[in-house]
Design a binder for these strands. Sequence first.
DNA 1: AAGTGGTCTAGACCACCGA
DNA 2: CGGTGGTCTAGACCACTTC
Lengths: 240, 240
Amino acid sequence: MDKKISYVPLYEQVKKDILRRIIAGDWSPGSFLPNEFALAEQYGVSQGTLRKALNELTAEKYLVRYQGKGTAVAVVEDDTALFPFFFLSRRDNKHIPPVSQINGIARIKASSDIAGHLQINEGDEVIEIKRVRILDNECVINEIVYISLKVTGDIHFEDQQFPNTLYVYYQHKCGIRIHRAVEDIEAVLPTADDVKKLGIVKTQPVMKISRTSFDVQERIVEYRISKINTQNFVYRASLQ
Amino acid sequence: MDKKISYVPLYEQVKKDILRRIIAGDWSPGSFLPNEFALAEQYGVSQGTLRKALNELTAEKYLVRYQGKGTAVAVVEDDTALFPFFFLSRRDNKHIPPVSQINGIARIKASSDIAGHLQINEGDEVIEIKRVRILDNECVINEIVYISLKVTGDIHFEDQQFPNTLYVYYQHKCGIRIHRAVEDIEAVLPTADDVKKLGIVKTQPVMKISRTSFDVQERIVEYRISKINTQNFVYRASLQ
DNA sequence: AAGTGGTCTAGACCACCGA
DNA sequence: CGGTGGTCTAGACCACTTC
């Protein structure tokens, strides 16, 4: 029954199976895998072949390896850790982590627009979070986040312990790790709400970023729209 | 004379030397390196060690490997090839390559602002190119590019044979390969020139992207400012 | 068929971590 | 100190390209 028509290297097969076990939760985020020799024996391959599989999973951010300690399933630290080449920067280049201020959390039924972005059915329940993000004592981002309860399972936020970084929350409370995202960036005029929250005049352009976030299973976890006042900050991308 | 205090793996040393030779032009873009065994013998290491060096340089876009053929120095195909996760996209997701229309090429002395961005002295000569880029029969980008003659050497563009993609031109005519870039993105009101070139009303916000491009030697080759009409297109970034 | 890069092995030794 | 990942080797064989 050899399938010689399309050859798949051993390390690819091993990699795929280890990824399957990570996604299935056989090893939870932060926990350590068996060592290289033990895993190699499990799969019946040499240490070198297993090593190649682990190194590729490490490059893809699924694993973290520590010399002398072992190999662990990667843990998300904050929203920006995933996207190290992309962040808000002050014109003077100082980088300040944002602070959130919640303006409202509600459980609503998805409009057709939101349902389309989250790829769920119209009327399905979602969490809607409205917040502003403050950098250097200035309201810079007016944001609205829609979370797909279909993916996260039931969520009940307590106001006093609301997480500053949602991605960390998903991981710890829902076992969901955001793995990739797509952003659409454009320049628009602010809405009345943007004008109020960001403290700008209504003719001041703002940057609108629509971000769709996917977990390791390629499910859409959240959709967020951020309006950014770029008078004192720029969105900086390092490309290579 | 062993320097045991800071251990440097063999493959790192080999990699660094091969990179030095690529940058020095020992092998020009598109030409093939000696095969793995020949190079391994040159450096006095095993094929596996040399292989690791070549694979890392391939991951960093310096080399391209073809099974059965050999290993070649990477060639830039177009401006966007470097940045596969970042491009203008129509709202209907169709992706159309842009066409350029030149509005002026001049050799000028750098203002203090331009000199600062190119990290040259005020008054140094630069090429200034004004152009608009057309997607799907619509003027979408109004752009001005400053090229550092100090880095590229002398350049004389012939209007009828102006290159559509500047990055390819740098490589073929100046032997300079753009390796990374930094973009600062913000939302602004259009200038009078933007209004005219993009055919928009003066209250329509535009995206302003300021991009600084570096070659493999970390020299700043060009600085460009692009104003984008995002009414029908969005700037899309895929993050992972 | 010859030559290239791609995979895989078995084994040795090194650098790092923590008890 | 033992255990982990990191490096390095020598050699075998496979898959792809070109002639």
